[in-house]
């Protein structure tokens, strides 16, 4: 009888040990303890904000950890990050790496990968990690500008829908081919401008814009946005002169409907709003030599 109990206890202990071992093994497996880990070297102009153990995050998931940091002979900071083999696919040659330091929460390095066709990052590359500081504070500053953009787009929508009402303005302009074609051109241009904005917006998804070049370079987002807004002003300006001419062509009776006056007011408001926004954008472009007034 006692011998039987000993056997049972023995079996219990063995099963318990096996279960504990399996659990530990499973957890370790899930934590990539058995998978091959690659060490990548990254470069940063400053070591501020980095710390050992800091996570590397892709789409909200941790895919790596900062291992060590060192100062290079060139004065840049070299950061070694361990990434398990199964997560390497998220880091491509075209990926952008950004150190985000929110006001609330832990700092982290975020990977943005848009082109999954791009070659996988190799260990002999040393991509740069860019810094973005206190996003929450920036959002706070930006809020009034977002309201302006919203209002401008509302105005543009109003103008384009008024112009689409053929029974009013378009018919008033009948007999003046130039006016009609200008109005048509404007309506088409709204669509073109929309497409151009979409193109610009798609660039944001790649987050290439987070580099200085992406923002301020000749093809940078700030410059592109500026171009589109300037284009909107130019087209609205031209439309304004067409609208000025319509009463002389179609007679003063047209003006009495009030449609033209309202439309003119909408256009003026939009032009003013876009101009104000352009000023705000201009102010955000760092003081660069090319924005100084100089003789050509």
């Amino acid at each position: 009888m006692p011998r039987n109990i000993e056997i049972k206890v023995g079996i219990f202990i063995i099963i318990s040990v096996l279960l504990i071992g399996a659990s530990v093994g499973y957890v370790a497996y899930k934590k990539d303890a058995f998978s091959k880990v690659y060490t990548f070297t990254f470069m940063s102009k400053s070591g501020d904000g980095f710390s050992e153990g800091m996570p590397l995050v892709f789409a909200g998931f941790k895919i790596g950890t900062v291992d060590t940091m060192a100062l290079s002979d060139k004065g840049t900071v070299l950061i070694k990050i361990n990434i398990p083999e199964r997560h390497i696919k998220w880091t491509r040659k075209s990926s952008i790496f950004i150190l985000e330091r929110p006001l609330i929460g832990q700092p982290r390095i975020v990977v943005y990968t848009d082109e999954m066709d791009s070659p996988v990052l190799s260990t002999d590359m040393a991509p740069e990690i860019f810094h973005v500081d206190s996003i929450d504070e920036a959002i706070h500053k930006v809020q009034p500008l977002l309201t302006k953009i919203d209002r401008i787009l509302d105005n543009v929508v109003t103008i384009s829908s008024k112009l689409s009402q053929k029974e009013t303005l378009m018919e008033m302009a009948v007999g003046d081919k130039e006016s009609v074609s200008s109005v048509n051109e404007f309506l088409q241009s709204i669509d073109t401008m929309g497409r151009r904005l979409d193109t610009i917006l798609s660039k944001v998804d790649t987050v290439i814009a987070r580099t200085d070049q992406g923002l301020y370079g000749s093809d940078g987002l700030v410059v592109l946005l500026r171009t589109v807004l300037t284009d909107i002003i130019g087209k609205l300006d031209r439309l304004n002169s067409v609208i000025d001419d319509i009463p002389t062509v179609t007679g003063q009776v047209v003006r009495s409907t009030g449609d033209l006056d309202n439309l003119r007011k909408d256009i003026d408001d939009t032009i003013h709003a876009v101009q104000e926004l352009l000023k705000d954008i201009d102010k955000m472009i760092p003081m660069k030599k090319e924005r100084e007034i100089n003789v050509p």
């Binding site: 500008l145 944001v204 923002l215 946005l225 955000m284």
Partner: peptide
């Protein structure tokens, strides 16, 4: 989209310009 875009641009420019 424009709002998101502008936020992105302005966030990135807001602090260090």
């Amino acid at each position: 989209k424009v709002i998101i875009f502008s936020a992105a641009v302005l966030i990135l420019t807001g602090c260090f310009s």
